Amino acid sequence: MHWLWVFIVGLVVGLIAKMFMPGKDPGGFIITAILGIAGSLLSTFVGEKLHLWGESGLVHFLGSIGGAAILLAIYHFATRSSSS
């Protein structure tokens, strides 16, 4: 059940991360949602393994936003480099 919540929160986190990352997103909503889910999963896995936070809480949510924003920035960098 925990990972289901991570998946659901990842959708929300992707949208929040998109607000912090201005610019046109070539993939639109779907790519943003996928990156949000991936960022949330990655942040959850790494944060829990390093004992930075528990299974829930505000710090966990903020870490998920950070993970999604990092993945979104990498995605923007990769799509800009390949299109030029």
Results as ranks from 00 to 15, higher is better:
residue 1 M to Y: 03
residue 1 M to E: 11
residue 3 W to R: 07
residue 4 L to C: 04
residue 6 V to T: 06
residue 8 I to A: 14
residue 9 V to K: 15
residue 11 L to I: 15
residue 12 V to Y: 11
residue 13 V to Y: 08
residue 13 V to R: 14
residue 13 V to S: 08
residue 14 G to N: 02
residue 16 I to E: 05
residue 18 K to R: 14
residue 18 K to N: 02
residue 19 M to E: 02
residue 19 M to S: 01
residue 20 F to V: 04
residue 26 P to Y: 07
residue 26 P to V: 11
residue 28 G to D: 07
residue 29 F to E: 05
residue 29 F to Q: 12
residue 30 I to A: 15
residue 31 I to Y: 14
residue 31 I to A: 15
residue 32 T to P: 02
residue 33 A to Q: 07
residue 34 I to R: 04
residue 34 I to D: 01
residue 34 I to N: 00
residue 36 G to P: 08
residue 38 A to S: 11
residue 40 S to G: 06
residue 40 S to D: 00
residue 42 L to F: 03
residue 43 S to M: 04
residue 43 S to T: 12
residue 43 S to R: 09
residue 44 T to K: 00
residue 45 F to E: 10
residue 48 E to K: 14
residue 50 L to Y: 14
residue 52 L to E: 07
residue 53 W to E: 02
residue 53 W to V: 04
residue 55 E to W: 12
residue 57 G to C: 09
residue 58 L to E: 12
residue 59 V to Q: 10
residue 60 H to M: 05
residue 61 F to H: 00
residue 61 F to K: 02
residue 63 G to L: 11
residue 64 S to L: 01
residue 65 I to D: 10
residue 67 G to C: 10
residue 72 L to V: 04
residue 72 L to N: 03
residue 72 L to M: 13
residue 74 I to K: 05
residue 74 I to C: 09
residue 76 H to K: 13
residue 77 F to C: 06
residue 78 A to H: 03
residue 80 R to L: 10
residue 81 S to V: 03
